[in-house]
Design a protein around this nucleic acid. Sequence first.
DNA 1: CATTATATGTACCGATCAGTTCATTAAGTC
DNA 2: GACTTAATGAACTGATCGGTACATATAATG
Lengths: 188, 188
Amino acid sequence: MRPSKRDELVRKALPIFYREGFHATGMDALVAETGISKTTMFKHFRTKDELILAVLRYRDETFRNWFFRKLDDKALPPKDRLAAIFDILEEWFEEPAFKGCMFIKASSEFQDPDHPAYAQSAEHKRLLQTAFRSICADAGAHDPELLARQLLILKEGAIVAAHMGFDPEPAAIAKATAEQLIANQIDV
Amino acid sequence: MRPSKRDELVRKALPIFYREGFHATGMDALVAETGISKTTMFKHFRTKDELILAVLRYRDETFRNWFFRKLDDKALPPKDRLAAIFDILEEWFEEPAFKGCMFIKASSEFQDPDHPAYAQSAEHKRLLQTAFRSICADAGAHDPELLARQLLILKEGAIVAAHMGFDPEPAAIAKATAEQLIANQIDV
DNA sequence: CATTATATGTACCGATCAGTTCATTAAGTC
DNA sequence: GACTTAATGAACTGATCGGTACATATAATG
């Protein structure tokens, strides 16, 4: 049971940072809400930034797992998997705890491109794009690279719209858009 | 010359908040970089949050002015104005000081929907959407409301992609996408 | 010149920040 | 039972946070 406390900290710190923000969350607040002592926190992570980075890595892993697991569970033929991306997005938006994309927020708070939190955030999006591209290829898109980049931009825009609340049905709008792109790239 | 110092403060504080973030920028840092005394700052704004709100209002005004002025200057026929949105977006992305959308960042740092900075950020996007819709209507779109919402989501996605750097040509990708949507909605 | 309004510098407030020190406790291993 | 490892609580550091107090300076107006 060696590293369990460390994992517990990362797991419990995630929703706090997600809900309150990174700068706005102090170490003392983490102690109060996680029940883990500050001494222990700084034994596992030398700085707050290192903890934040571990939280972001954990988020990247769990989010992508959750997302593509959901997609796989639908057991759709390749050509229908692309539009289904936006159905899963909608499920996410409707969660009560939804507060936008953690990586968009991380890159908003840590703007220095050399900051590891920024780098990790960009990496998360790149990994999504790679996954999208392979789905596009499986679906028989003429230009999988282009379609994946279009779908990712649509997804990010929908997240921003959902978080800021300026569009009541961002996932549906993005899905309708995606379907046009897909129809133009995939022969029926 | 009554409110000049107040305006000067708002004007000078804007790029600092934009570059460094809201929480990460302290009042002392604003004093150091603007050359305006802290006493004066708190004479014009009762709290830091009020200053931030004034900065966001100023940003909303200047950004929309800049954006639609640029669009008008192109003197395009209505049906070509829509795609041109993404050319202006590209100009913005290529500015050396580009650091993403200030309102996306504000809503990332101030997540409480009741926070005035959050409300102002959402309002900015709503104003853009209204402007987009009227351009869509002028262009003869079948469903101006739908098209405007699609274009705004595309624009936000492109901004995120540009800021996080996971796509080398987000404006071009978004424009190519927009052109498909436009072609589907406007008869030639 | 006198008055009024605005801006300034400096020192200060209590609270909070990230991070440390240290003595104590609890649990697992040999 | 001795030893090691991990976790704890609480007090503490120096720096910074947003914001205030106050006395001085500057400038325009009458």
